[in-house]
Amino acid sequence: MEPPPLLLPPEHPSSDAAHSNIPPPTMPPSSDIESDDDIFEVDEVTEDRLAQSWDLTLVGSILLGKPYCKQAVTEALIATWNTKFSVSSLYKDTYMFHFQHAMDMQNILGEGPWFVAGNLIILEKWVASRSWKFEVTDFWIQFHALPEEFMDLEIAAKLAKKVGTPWKVMLINGFRGGQQLCYLRARITLKILKPLKSSIMLKRRDGTQSIIEVRYERLPLTCF
């Protein structure tokens, strides 16, 4: 029987470089406000109502690839997401996705990565400051060729930290299609500008060494 997944406390990796299609902000024109009649003050109820409506919005940027129209992005994602959403263009290769239910949006964030014509689309939650960076994405990874005695959740967490920022680890031990499966699995946040690790060396106290294979589930055509 497999042990339950180990949930790890969230970490927020720092970024090395920006990857964003968002244009720099422009300076507002000089103010010519002369009286209270020139001021529109938004009440708290309206602020809260507007904020709640945008809480169901994700912003996505397509990594590399050719430019896509809104219809092409919608058609590429509607079958894989299997939920109701609307799409609107924001910037070049950057789109807003509006959902009807919070659970649908959370499922999309938690089940990625997602792709448009084989190109990775990086998703972030809407923020009013528009300070998205599109520098990280979440992946499931697997660790294979471990010695039997190292099939352990704490080992999985330590190995996952060698690849990215882990927040969930699992031990997979069972059968599928008559074939035995035995490996460690982790959900991690990856910096897309860093090269992917394909292996990790395991060094034991007696001096013996072995190579652990790192596999990435649903790796896109553009491997960063």
Rank of each mutant, 00 (worst) to 15 (best):
L7V: 15
L8S: 13
S15V: 13
H19G: 02
N21F: 14
N21K: 07
I22E: 07
P23K: 09
P24E: 09
P28D: 04
S31P: 00
E41I: 13
D43K: 00
D43A: 02
T46L: 05
T46R: 03
T46C: 12
E47R: 01
D48N: 01
D48A: 01
L50F: 03
Q52K: 15
Q52H: 14
S53R: 14
L56V: 01
L56G: 04
V59Q: 08
G60D: 02
I62N: 13
C69S: 15
K70E: 15
Q71A: 13
L77R: 10
W81A: 03
K84T: 11
F85M: 07
V87M: 09
V87L: 09
L90E: 07
F97H: 06
H98D: 04
H98V: 10
M103P: 07
D104F: 06
L109G: 06
G110M: 09
W114Q: 00
W114Y: 10
G118Q: 14
L120S: 03
L123W: 05
K125G: 06
W126P: 04
K133F: 02
Q142H: 12
H144T: 08
L146T: 11
E148H: 05
D152W: 14
A156C: 15
K162E: 15
G164K: 03
W167I: 03
V169E: 09
F175S: 07
Q179N: 12
L190S: 00
I192L: 15
L196P: 02
S199H: 14
I200K: 01
R204K: 11
Q209N: 12
I211Y: 02
I212S: 05
E213T: 15
E217N: 08
L221T: 13
T222N: 14
